[in-house]
Amino acid sequence: MEAAMGLMRRIPPKHSEAALSALLSLLPDHSSDLLSQVDQPLQVLCDVDSGKEFILCEYNRDADSYRSPWSNKYHPALEDGPYPSPELRKLEIEANDVFAIYRDQYYEGGISSVYMWEDENEGFVACFLIKKDGSKTAHGRRGYLQEGAWDAIHVIEVGPEEEGTARYCLTSTVMLSLTTKDESSGTFNLSGSIRRQMNMDLSVAEGHLCNMGKMIEEMEGKLRNSLDQVYFGKTKEMVCTLRPPSELVQTRLPDS
């Protein structure tokens, strides 16, 4: 497993799907470990009842069917797939509605889905997913991107309520790829994935959705910022180490 995770850290992120399926075929015994530890780009299906698209993941899957958050039905239809309790389903519906507005305000497009299920220790787990195609042929408002994909996966474990507070454990992954292409500068592609965790004990007075939403918003801001400033910045630094821009060369010459 360690070696498999080592490979996933080196193979170009745009090939992560191919790398994961190769690892699954080499290590069938570790398939559940691999699937839970390696995030892959999100897929979507269309809900036949509502006509809206929803996102597929391990958390809304049973056998080969996926439950839509809109109609609460499995696609393709499934006899006895698991469902959240009516109370949790109510929160799930609300979360999907509110999160769609949140998504629209930050992403100006894209698809989102929220899934919830009870866990063993009297709490529940929620999974917030966002998929955005920012290419100029899809939801890229500004039309700069030849290709642009952003997949965000937020899984929050919510502990049981104790004296008005609950423990929230958030694990977030962002996978992205962006490509610009033109005559004078060729193709320029940055791709990557990062995963971070955040734990908080919060009063449930304002409701779970408010707490989860704030954590996700803070986390997405941090992830976006570190991708932009740190990760992309480091690759830029590397380019300038390979070939320092001429101003640097000129200013350094008199010293040597």
Partner: peptide
């Protein structure tokens, strides 16, 4: 031009020009 930064993540630049 390629660059790879992989401290707690995996981000790569792949740039080509002719």
């Amino acid at each position: 031009v390629g660059a790879h930064y992989f401290e707690e993540g995996n981000v790569q630049l792949d740039a080509n020009h002719e």
